[in-house]
């Protein structure tokens, strides 16, 4: 039962439409992955800058853009449950599609710009790593871990929970939805983009890395805002709490006993693992 409860709670945090959109994105990513030309140079060269430049040289910009969009479609819909529910709830029924379209336009625009910035950052990181003689994966790994633990990232994550006023009518309604998309896209990209250097810089294993990153971002987005502080912010730590609770419950149901008028003491709970904070409101 405990596991079922856990799954129910997790499932409720997602929308079937968004999961379907994400699956479509993953199919597109897989299809485009077969079409993208990754020359042998990219898999074997020790020159990381050359790797990235070669991928650019062997593929058309349109195909690269399509691949980036497919990646966004695969990874981002599960992160958008909260803002899309807000748009749906706070818009006139006849304007809902328009509101969501305006939001997605703003959100997507930010991510398209972020894609260019990320590519430039990838080339710069590769060049710097090469110049310093540091293995490229170590360099991007350090960037990812460094960004993960900063208080600044927690501020970005907190801002992803921001739900602004949405006007109901006319131009103001469109403007509010677009600016919501732009703002949400900015904080989302700021939270995620530095971590996305990892799959970009590792063409050999970029699909598994993307999947791993996507799962961790979904779990992380489900966690509530919290004070900004240096923290490991283990991806999915809220789920770790749930799993621990599930185990406690299973244990408790085996030990269930009555003590006095207060029902069902369940025994002492195990302390939470380091870095895992219970939600307090």
């Amino acid at each position: 039962m405990a596991l079922r409860l856990t799954l129910l709670a997790l499932a409720e945090r997602q929308s079937r439409v968004l999961i379907l959109a994400s699956l479509t994105g993953w199919l597109a990513v897989l299809a485009l992955d077969c079409m993208l030309l990754v020359p042998e140079l990219c898999l074997s060269s020790d020159a990381p800058v050359e790797r990235l430049r070669a991928i650019g040289a062997f593929n058309s910009p349109a195909l690269l853009m399509l691949a980036w969009c497919a990646m966004l479609l695969a990874m981002m819909p599960p992160l958008l449950r909260e803002p899309l529910a807000h748009l749906r709830r706070r818009s006139l029924v006849r304007r809902r599609v328009r509101a969501i379209t305006a939001f997605v336009a703003g959100y997507g625009a930010v991510w398209l710009v972020a894609g260019v910035v990320l590519l430039a950052a990838a080339i710069a990181t590769a060049a710097a790593a090469n110049a310093m003689g540091v293995p490229m994966l170590l360099a991007v790994g350090a960037i990812a871990v460094g960004w993960q633990v900063t208080p600044l990232r927690q501020i970005c994550l907190n801002r992803c929970h921001w739900l602004p006023r949405l006007s109901a009518f006319g131009f103001a309604a469109d403007r509010d939805c677009v600016s919501f998309g732009l703002a949400h896209g900015f904080w989302c990209a700021a939270s995620c983009a530095p971590l996305m250097l990892l799959p970009i810089m590792a063409p050999q294993i970029h699909l598994p890395l993307m999947a791993l990153l996507s799962a961790s971002l979904i779990l992380e987005r489900m966690a509530p805002p919290r004070p900004a502080a240096w923290s490991l912010r283990l991806p999915g730590q809220s789920v770790i709490v749930i799993i621990i609770r599930s185990m406690q419950r299973r244990h408790a149901s085996a030990l269930l006993s009555m003590q006095g008028p207060i029902p069902a003491p369940f025994g002492a709970a195990s302390p939470l693992p380091p870095g895992v904070q219970p939600r307090c409101d």
Binding site: M1, L5, T6, L8
Partner: peptide
Amino acid sequence: DEQWLSGPADHA
């Protein structure tokens, strides 16, 4: 609903 009777899932 089980989520009310046994929940919340993330905090005992």
